[in-house]
Design a protein around this nucleic acid. Structure first.
Lengths: 336, 336
DNA sequence: CTGTTAGCGCGTTCAC
DNA sequence: GTGAACGCGCTAACAG
């Protein structure tokens, strides 16, 4: 609003009656300045509303104090918590985050990374749209890159991903703990690694418990309507089912609907479990839905931490797996 | 990965056998360079992988080519489309976007803005969490500020907000066009200006059509469960209702549930309309839900445009209102 | 303790 | 056409 040019260090120094260098030292807390002088400088800086120019500092130090965040799914609810975690971990005091959305387009991604490099970001975080592996872009990029959510296909890169196998296992263990033994799986798109891996984890947990899955895992789409349809089929073929593990909360909503229509009680007759812990869907369901939270904020924070380490000169190779956690609600309450 | 220091203009110039100044002119397309020389410079730049240092450029020009985006509701689904619109409008070619989340905390907001100013952003967009007015922060900020979603309480500021009154009107007009005349309103938290204003707009449209609202608008919370409860009350008191206008898609989902339980057909007996056009909820509903889309991406783009104008020296005062649009689905199909 | 000097990488005068 | 010199705002050596 006030069209004033930003106050420079030179002006502060002049006002305080010292040289630019002294003013710099005073403001940066170097100890080579008399206390009274330092106070005078700080006073002037405050009066003039001095804000140090991070650009100039960056030019000098070779470090801009910024990182780039390249996302592919800004619209989706997965990137956002990750993004929050990243933003949170960097805290905006020392490091600011440039946000770009490449929308699944590799050309666009390349272009945006070019722009980020022009701004001399100290590092880049790439957030994928699915949990499937994605092509590495680290080659030829002069700053550290961390892959979040979708790991890089190059094991030498640093990635932070969600433990889908573990999530499948956790879910089944929870259902078993709730006294269930005839468990079926209704999940989403089979081309998603996430869907496959969670089914695998679930199978393993069942094996270890000496149980057998009811039928085969049914894959479909990540929608309510698929949840409804798949449930009708399932209950017709396997009326003995006492628990349904769903690939997402949305699918679980459909499952709940279909069960109610069929006159079945949840969790009395059948326990239902979702995935994502999408608060508004899970809590708002007729029977509040137990679900696996992917701890995506933590994933984002971890990615940020890894990037900071790499920037500091301690790069990390391989994939960090973030564990999910079961958020228990009514839909799986133990049989009493 | 490759720990090389970024290539500088000086290196390009040396490689091409010209001075720094000439190289600069060549790369920036100034016409004071012989074509052959220019080609040579461009060639060297490409070979060395030269990326101009935006920091240095910014230092020189006094314009950083960056803007700050301060949001308060990164988690929510309102900020995201706005954010996408902003990101889209700036396009990352000339201007990059710093993202910060103040999470509703004024102290934090102040702090983050300070950090942004330190990075010499050319302007700031503040995205509010509600549509209610919010305190202005423009005073003492040396760059233009645009308020998105939640307008500033200072009419001299530039704000871009959603036209809630208009949305209420649009909704009612749509319901009337679908042959409805006994319309009721179930909406959310009465402390939200959005809820009040949309009810006002709806009332006006009814008045103009010579119709009367069935009962009073019922305010509650933005939840499915409120939608269910309010519907039971409404249908008990006013069984003549032939349309229910809801404050959100989530509420509408509850309304649909309650109507189905009561054995009422949608839209045969009662038409239902939501707000937000939250795709996954609206399309996935048992009867796909007609809803008002707030065009938030457009809102974000408009905010970005306004900011760009202000940065260019053409500030704009007052509130731009973005109109919503009705997205028609089955839940309001005209009676046949 | 404080001031002077020398750049960080680039664009922009000006002379040549 | 081309190049030398200056300065954007700041910090890190050195001098004083």
């Amino acid at each position: 609003m006030t069209g004033d040019k930003p106050v420079t260090l030179a002006e502060v120094a002049a006002q305080a009656g010292v040289s630019i260098a002294t003013a710099s030292k005073a403001l940066n807390g170097r100890d080579q300045v008399r206390a009274s002088t330092k106070d005078r400088v700080l006073q002037s800086a405050r009066e003039l509303g001095f804000t140090p120019n991070a650009l100039a500092k960056g030019l000098l130090s070779g470090r801009s104090g910024t990182v780039g965040l390249v996302t592919h799914d800004l619209e989706g609810r997965f990137s956002i918590p990750i993004l929050m975690g990243v933003e949170d971990a960097f805290g905006a005091e020392k490091t600011s985050v440039f946000l770009t959305d490449a929308r699944g387009d590799a050309i666009r991604e390349r272009y945006q990374i070019e722009a980020l490099l022009g701004r001399r970001v100290d590092g880049i975080i790439v957030v994928g749209e699915q949990t499937n592996n994605r092509p590495s872009i680290s080659a030829g990029i002069p700053v550290p890159v961390v892959y979040a959510y979708a790991p890089s296909d190059n094991p030498a890169d640093c990635s932070v991903a969600f433990d889908n196998v573990g999530a499948g296992r956790l879910s089944v263990e929870h259902l078993i703990a709730c006294g269930r033994s005839r468990i079926a799986i209704i999940t989403g798109d089979p081309t998603y690694g996430a869907a496959q891996e969670r089914a695998i984890g679930a199978q393993r947990a069942l094996d270890e418990a000496g149980l057998k899955l009811v039928g085969e895992p049914t894959f479909g789409t990540w929608t309510e309507s698929w949840g409804r349809g798949a449930t009708r089929l399932l209950m017709a073929q396997h009326p003995e089912v006492d628990a349904i593990l769903c690939g997402s909360d949305l699918i679980a909503r459909g499952v709940l609907d279909a069960l109610r229509e069929r006159g079945l009680e949840v969790p009395g007759d059948v326990a239902v479990m979702g995935h994502d812990n999408w608060e508004v869907l899970a809590s708002g369901a007729r029977v509040p839905l137990t679900s696996v939270d992917m701890n995506l904020e933590q994933l984002g924070r971890r990615a940020a931490t890894r990037l900071a380490e790499a920037i500091a000169g301690n790069p990390h190779a391989g994939v960090d797996l973030i564990e999910g956690r079961v958020v228990t609600r009514k839909s799986t309450a133990p049989l009493d």
